[in-house]
């Protein structure tokens, strides 16, 4: 379980996240909406543990452990993973090597097999992220996460820049990561499948396209650093597309 209580985060002395409360239970996937610059990426970077996102109050608890001040790699080892929107290029470090790093020595991870699932095998011997297009970055990130198998996956706009040809691949990979893949003909009852799910997800999305592949349990709007609304993700998306984020401003004022 991920539990965030009254989280306040500054960057360079400026408050960017204000009194955030959030709880993701095992098996749940939540979606984060919000206009550009509202603090969505900051929230998942703070959960991942990036030191420039300075936690000035509140706490982050993962699997019952207070990780508010844990270094990034400890959080990764505990099972938190992240799909970046703009990851850095690391010259001389190959995609294949990244898959091995993510696998953390698990012998059952086969880079070729995972990459072919994402139509990405030809990138294994390229420097990670070097000259990758937006869509290629997304597939590369998912490839790494498939090897890492985190229990909580933070996605920063996983569908942006992905072409039509690959959107289904990306959607399915995310569903696999979150144990939400559809299994028609499966003997087990849907309720049982749901009960056995343990993977958690937090997805930033602008378009909501990803919801076609990954059903989400809960949605939020982050507006100016405040979680202004939560509820059914499809309903929120509808609201936003009809009224824009201006409506959220009203709610944000009310809550803060």
């Amino acid at each position: 379980m991920l539990l965030i209580e009254d989280l306040q985060v500054n960057i360079g002395g400026r408050a960017i996240l204000k009194h955030i409360d959030l709880e993701i239970k095992p098996g749940e996937t939540h979606v984060l909406f919000g206009p550009n610059g509202s603090g969505k990426t900051s929230l998942i970077m703070a959960i991942m543990g990036y030191p420039q996102y300075e936690v000035v109050a509140g706490r982050i608890v993962f699997k019952g452990v207070d990780i508010t001040h844990s270094p990034i790699n400890e959080r990764a080892k505990m099972g938190i993973g992240m799909s970046y929107q703009r990851p850095p290029t690391v010259h001389g470090v190959k995609t294949r090597q990244m898959v091995h790093i993510c696998a953390g020595g698990r012998p059952d991870v086969d880079p070729e097999e995972l990459a072919s699932r994402l139509n990405f095998a030809s990138f294994l011997d390229r420097d990670i992220n070097a000259g990758f297009s937006g869509g290629e970055i997304k597939r590369s990130e998912l490839l790494q996460l498939l090897a890492q198998r985190p229990d909580l996956v933070l996605f920063d706009e996983p569908e942006s820049g992905v072409d039509l040809e690959n959107i289904a691949l990306v959607g399915e990979a995310i569903a696999v990561l979150l144990e939400k893949e559809r299994e028609p003909g499966n003997a087990r009852a849907m309720s049982q499948v749901k009960r056995e799910r343990s993977k958690m997800g937090l997805i930033i999305t602008h378009t909501g396209f990803i919801l076609d592949y990954v059903p989400a349990d809960k949605g939020y709007v982050l507006y100016d650093g405040v979680l202004s609304c939560s509820g059914n993700p499809a309903e929120i998306l509808n609201w936003i597309s009809e009224c824009g984020y201006e409506e959220c401003a009203k709610c944000a004022m009310k809550t803060s």
Partner: peptide, 8 residues
């Protein structure tokens, strides 16, 4: 940081 978030 990127590599650390993959567990190194």
């Amino acid at each position: 940081n990127y590599l650390m978030s993959r567990g190194l």
